[in-house]
Computed example of a mutant assay.
Amino acid sequence: MPLHIRPLTPALGAQVLDIDLRTPLSSSQHHALEQALLEHQVLFFRDQSLAPGDHARFAAHFGDLHVHPVYPHVPGLPEITVLDTQSLDTRDTATWHTDVTFLATPAMGAVLAARQLPPCGGDTLWASGIAAYGALSPQLRQLLDGLSATHDISKHFPQAIEGVITAQYMARLKAAQVQNPPVSHPVVRTHPVSGRKALFVNEGFTTRIDQLPVAESDALLRFLFAHATRPEFTLRWRWQTGDVAFWDNRATQHYAVDDYLPQRRVMHRAAILGDKPF
Rank of each mutant, 00 (worst) to 15 (best):
G129R: 04
I130Q: 10
I130E: 13
I130F: 11
A131S: 14
A132S: 13
A132E: 11
A132C: 13
Y133S: 13
Y133C: 11
G134E: 15
G134D: 15
G134A: 07
A135H: 12
A135K: 14
L136A: 07
L136G: 09
S137G: 02
P138L: 05
P138S: 02
P138K: 03
Q139M: 14
L140M: 11
L140F: 01
R141T: 05
R141Y: 02
R141C: 11
R141M: 05
Q142W: 01
Q142E: 11
L143C: 11
L143D: 09
L144N: 06
L144M: 04
L144F: 07
L144I: 06
D145H: 09
G146L: 09
G146I: 00
L147V: 01
L147Q: 07
S148R: 12
T150K: 07
T150A: 14
H151P: 11
H151M: 15
D152R: 08
D152Q: 07
S154G: 12
S154H: 08
K155Y: 04
K155C: 05
F157W: 10
P158L: 04
P158K: 01
A160Y: 08
I161Y: 04
I161S: 09
E162N: 10
E162F: 05
G163D: 10
V164P: 00
V164Q: 14
I165C: 02
I165W: 02
T166I: 14
T166Y: 03
T166M: 07
A167Q: 15
A167T: 12
A167I: 10
Y169A: 07
Y169H: 10
Y169F: 14
M170R: 13
A171C: 07
R172S: 14
R172G: 10
L173P: 04
A175P: 01
A175F: 02
A175K: 13
A176R: 04
V178C: 03
Q179V: 02
Q179F: 06
N180C: 12
P182S: 08
P182F: 06
P182W: 09
V183L: 08
V183M: 10
S184W: 03
S184Q: 15
P186V: 08
P186T: 05
V187P: 08
T190P: 00
T190W: 00
P192E: 06
P192A: 08
V193N: 00
V193W: 00
V193L: 04
V193C: 00
S194C: 01
S194N: 02
G195M: 00
G195L: 00
R196P: 00
K197W: 00
K197A: 04
K197Q: 03
L199Q: 08
L199Y: 01
L199W: 00
F200A: 01
F200V: 00
V201S: 03
N202L: 05
N202H: 04
E203P: 01
E203I: 01
E203F: 01
F205K: 10
F205A: 09
I209Q: 05
D210E: 15
Q211V: 02
Q211G: 10
L212A: 09
L212I: 05
L212T: 05
P213R: 14
P213T: 09
V214T: 15
E216M: 14
E216P: 05
E216F: 10
D218Q: 15
A219Q: 14
A219M: 14
A219N: 09
